[in-house]
């Protein structure tokens, strides 16, 4: 909500400018007509068609307006200019590394940027991800017939995503982003012992659980009975060092196991 309040930031600015602007606008009156034709002829605004009327054609821009409107539009020019520059400055501070100025104005910057102007362009930077993180799930199902618990072994959900992505020109977000980002969200909002940090931790847990469950029901695990509890783990394996380099990379698989979640 805070991020959309453009008005306060702009409202108190224009007062400083009016004394300067009208003369500038007046100075603009002379050069405009002569500057126009050579610029780029195809881009004339359609309003120009009024040439045959009795009234002379209006000079485009502020210079063609009467004095009161010149003041109004000059004010608008100042407001719009300052708003654009202000916005860009805040976006810059948001994407730049934390620095003296951005720390000083952290509240202003965050207040403006979040949620709609949030952005992150550290694409494969500072270093690209160098490991495959696969999310796997296993479950316990209560059989429909006898009511006994049937264990269902580890299933690599990321491998299924990978298979769906392979040999397609248009991978779906449901395959490329859903589980991958859900896991990022989970690890980012949990500590080493898989304890949630704040509300986001709790949300990410439920999200991950719902994804896992929907995948399990999709493939028929659910049809075998009622899913009683599930467990997730991640399997992290480093991408081996390039064949041409003499680097040694440990390509063992490391697991991070989450506790069982009872449904």
């Amino acid at each position: 909500m805070e991020s959309n309040e453009r008005e306060p930031a702009e409202a108190d600015v224009p007062q400083a400018v009016p004394p300067i602007d009208p003369p500038v606008a007046a100075a603009a009156a002379a050069p405009v007509p002569s500057a126009r034709p050579p610029a780029d002829p195809p881009v004339e605004p359609p309003a120009e068609g009024a040439a045959e009327r009795a009234t002379p054609p209006r000079v485009p821009g502020i210079a063609g307006l009467s004095a009161p409107y010149r003041v109004v539009t000059a004010l608008a020019l100042a407001v719009v200019g300052l708003a654009a520059c202000g916005h860009l400055a805040l976006v810059f501070l948001h994407v730049a590394p934390s620095n003296t100025v951005s720390k000083q104005h952290a509240q202003t910057v965050d207040g403006w940027i979040y949620p709609e102007f949030e952005q992150n362009w550290k694409l494969f930077a500072p270093n690209p991800l160098q490991q495959n993180i696969a999310v796997e799930v296993r479950a316990e199902v209560r059989s429909r017939l006898g009511g006994e618990l049937i264990p269902v072994g580890w299933r690599d959900l990321s491998a299924e995503d990978g298979a769906a992505i392979r040999h397609g020109l248009l991978p779906s977000h449901t395959r490329q982003n859903e589980l991958r980002r859900a896991w990022d969200f989970f690890t980012g909002s949990h500590d080493e012992d898989n304890k949630p940090i704040g509300e986001r931790g709790e949300l990410s847990e439920q999200y991950l659980r719902r994804i896992a469950l929907s995948r399990l029901t999709d493939d028929g695990t659910g049809a075998r009975g009622e899913i009683v509890r599930i467990q997730l783990r991640s399997a992290t394996r480093a991408v081996p060092a390039p064949p041409w380099s003499d680097e040694k990379t440990d390509t063992q698989t490391y697991y991070r196991e989450l506790p069982w979640w009872t449904l």
Partner: peptide
Amino acid sequence: AGRAVARVSGR
């Protein structure tokens, strides 16, 4: 400055 104002307000 005048030219700039004419440019950004005229088109």
